[in-house]
């Protein structure tokens, strides 16, 4: 076993010297996960809001499904997206497999249930409070969705951050659909998996450390948001 000291030494060396290889991987990871979260927000937030506001038959089933999908193992998502994007699959003609686009799709699929489920919960709670007041003002269902999305923005941003945390840290899905191709689809988690399999625990730990810093940053941001929201009583 290499000792922790060496691993951390290597980690700091990589970070402090802004190692080009490391930087490339970190930047790609951020680009992919941020894109996935943006997409997941565009899909998940309205979806959650509509589920919170509109009553329709089968709504309970959709809500239950959404909650269950939150716990979907990334490998399963990766496998499903692989089967869709594979040349032999229904979307194979687009040639997206083993590209960052495929990874964005997989992470979006992973994050949408989280964002939508949290959004639904938050917005439904707020809807009970707002419903009669908004109806008196003549606001229809669509306007209600918009108003609730905006007024729940603090909690919803936290939901997006939670989704980002899941996206940036998962390996199972992106390694299958991205292929961990050097300079093309290699992100932090797949690089960690690779370095571990090479037995290069120092480099793996170095990358893990960067990931940890990002996770801490995201959580600090979420906490700051909650504080700011509490100060304005927006939560």
């Amino acid at each position: 076993m290499q000792d922790f000291g060496a691993a951390f030494g290597e980690a700091f060396r990589l970070i402090l010297t802004l190692d080009a290889g490391l930087l490339e991987i970190v930047v790609l990871s951020l680009k992919i996960s941020l894109s996935a979260v943006a997409l997941a927000g565009l899909i998940g937030l309205p979806l959650g809001a509509v589920l919170a506001v509109v009553r329709f038959p089968g709504r309970a089933v959709v809500v239950t499904l959404l909650n269950a999908l939150m716990g979907l193992p990334p490998v399963v998502v990766g496998l499903i997206v692989y089967l869709m994007l594979s040349r032999a699959g229904p979307l194979g003609v687009f040639g997206l497999l083993y590209t960052p686009a495929a990874m964005i799709i997989a992470q979006t699929v992973l994050v949408v249930p989280i964002v939508a489920a949290i959004a639904r919960q938050v917005i439904e709670d707020m809807r009970t409070e707002y419903d009669e007041q908004l109806r008196v003002l003549g606001i229809g269902p669509l306007g209600m969705v918009r108003t609730l999305l905006w007024d729940a923005r603090a909690s919803l941003l936290t939901a997006l951050l939670a989704g980002f945390g899941r996206a940036i840290a998962e390996v199972g899905a992106v390694i299958i659909v991205g292929g961990n191709i050097d300079h093309v689809t290699r992100v932090m988690t797949t690089a960690i998996a690779l370095e571990t399999s090479k037995g290069d625990l120092a480099l793996a730990l170095g990358l893990g450390f960067v990931l940890l810093v990002i996770a801490v940053g995201v959580n600090a941001l979420a906490m700051g948001l909650r504080r700011a929201a509490a100060r304005g009583a927006y939560a």
């Binding site: 680009k31 943006a38 997409l39 040639g95 997206l96 960052p100 686009a101 923005r153």
Partner: peptide, 20 residues
């Protein structure tokens, strides 16, 4: 927020474009 979404869309475009 709108600016953020716009930036995200651009980011997305720049990532997806090379695939094609």
């Amino acid at each position: 927020i709108a600016a953020g979404l716009m930036a995200a869309a651009l980011l997305l475009g720049s990532l997806v474009a090379p695939a094609f």
